[in-house]
């Protein structure tokens, strides 16, 4: 009895294994196709919705097989992947956050191994920000305005002690993200004559957590940040005015007594894209998205608790007039 049972058990085991393996193989055949177009997902919503719109149009209007792969924002893996063909298209590269990588991979002497496909239509703005309550106070939360006359960087000095922390002593603190981005805070502070010290949070997550904690406590904080960014919707930030950027200013010139240049956010592609996917190439070169359009989709996504794909689909459904011109 026990002998037959154990035989049966073995037969069943073999049967289940065979069944599952067959199923696995069947799945794989459908999934991995040489003709799959790989778009890059990065780690912020504005980028994700823009990529999702491109993906939906490529799939539904042009019949391509499209998949997304993930690479952290403007990082080495992104550029290496675009070089090797692991990735085919990324919608939103902010040049000033990956200057060194762009020099090496896109603008190298004798031609780069990754191609730039013009701008996507988003323009990125960088600056120094404080929460609105620092200037205007917040009666509802019982926060008094601690720097009521703070408008431009030349007003910073009179409020140095307001922004001081135990790390910076008597100087005010400018919260910076990571020294890996070439943001030149010390040079700017010196040029502005501000009695402030730049403190690096080390990573984006850390800096934003610090900003969040300051906001919860109603503490004054001066931070580096850029637009578009989700933090503006959550924390109501006011930008501190800086002298306008001109061609004499860093990085083109040598002066630091200026603000930041506007970032023309660019599309980057794998050089083989035009040959392998000519139609998709034409579509992607026409593809454009403005700050307003991107913000609209992101807002819909966060307010109505949609997935990235749902929010992008709703926008595609409602804006046929906009995208029909992109289809080759």
């Amino acid at each position: 009895m026990s002998r037959t049972r154990s035989t049966w058990t073995k037969v069943m085991l073999v049967a289940v294994l065979a069944l599952t393996l067959l199923a696995g193989l069947a799945c794989e055949e459908g999934g991995d196709d040489a003709q799959t177009l790989y778009l890059v997902d990065q780690d912020w919503n504005g980028q994700l919705v823009t990529t999702a719109v491109a993906q939906i149009l490529l799939e539904q209007e042009m019949g391509h097989t499209v998949a997304t792969k993930f690479a952290p924002a403007d990082s080495a893996p992104l550029f290496i992947g675009l070089e090797t063909g692991d990735f085919h298209f990324v919608c939103c590269n902010w040049p000033s956050y990956s200057a060194e990588l762009l020099d090496e991979y896109v603008d190298a002497d004798g031609g780069g191994v990754v191609e730039r496909m013009g701008t996507v239509g988003i323009s990125g703005e960088t600056g120094w920000y404080v929460p609105s309550y620092v200037i205007n106070g917040d009666a509802e939360r019982g926060i008094a305005p601690v720097a009521p006359d703070l408008r431009t960087v030349s007003d910073l000095n009179q409020y140095a002690s307001v922004f001081a922390t135990s790390d910076t002593g008597t100087k005010g603190r400018l919260l910076e993200f990571t020294p890996a981005w070439d943001t030149k805070p010390e040079e700017r502070l010196e040029a502005f004559g501000a009695d402030f010290q730049a403190v690096f949070a080390g990573s984006e997550g850390a800096a934003l957590a610090e900003l969040d904690a300051a906001f919860q406590r109603g503490d004054p904080i001066l931070t580096y940040l850029w637009e578009p960014h989700w933090a503006h919707a959550k924390y109501n930030l006011v930008q501190i005015e800086m002298p306008e950027w001109t061609s004499d200013c860093y990085p083109e010139g040598s002066s630091f007594n200026c603000g930041f240049p506007t970032d023309p956010v660019a599309k980057l592609i794998w050089p083989g894209l035009q040959e392998e996917f000519p139609e998709a190439f034409d579509f992607l070169s026409n593809f454009q998205m403005t700050n307003e359009q991107q913000n609209e989709i992101v807002l819909n996504l966060t307010e109505n608790d949609l997935t990235v794909r749902q929010a992008a689909q709703e926008w595609v459904d409602a804006n046929g007039a906009v995208w029909s011109a992109w289809i080759p």
């Binding site: 990082s75 080495a76 060194e100 990588l101 090496e104 990571t178 020294p179 890996a180 403190v199 690096f200 949070a201 080390g202 990573s203 997550g205 850390a206």
Partner: peptide, 20 residues
Amino acid sequence: AGLVGGGGLGQEVFINSIWL
């Protein structure tokens, strides 16, 4: 520690991985 503003060798390693 390098990722939360500790500086030092940790931050150096992290930055250089970004800068290739």
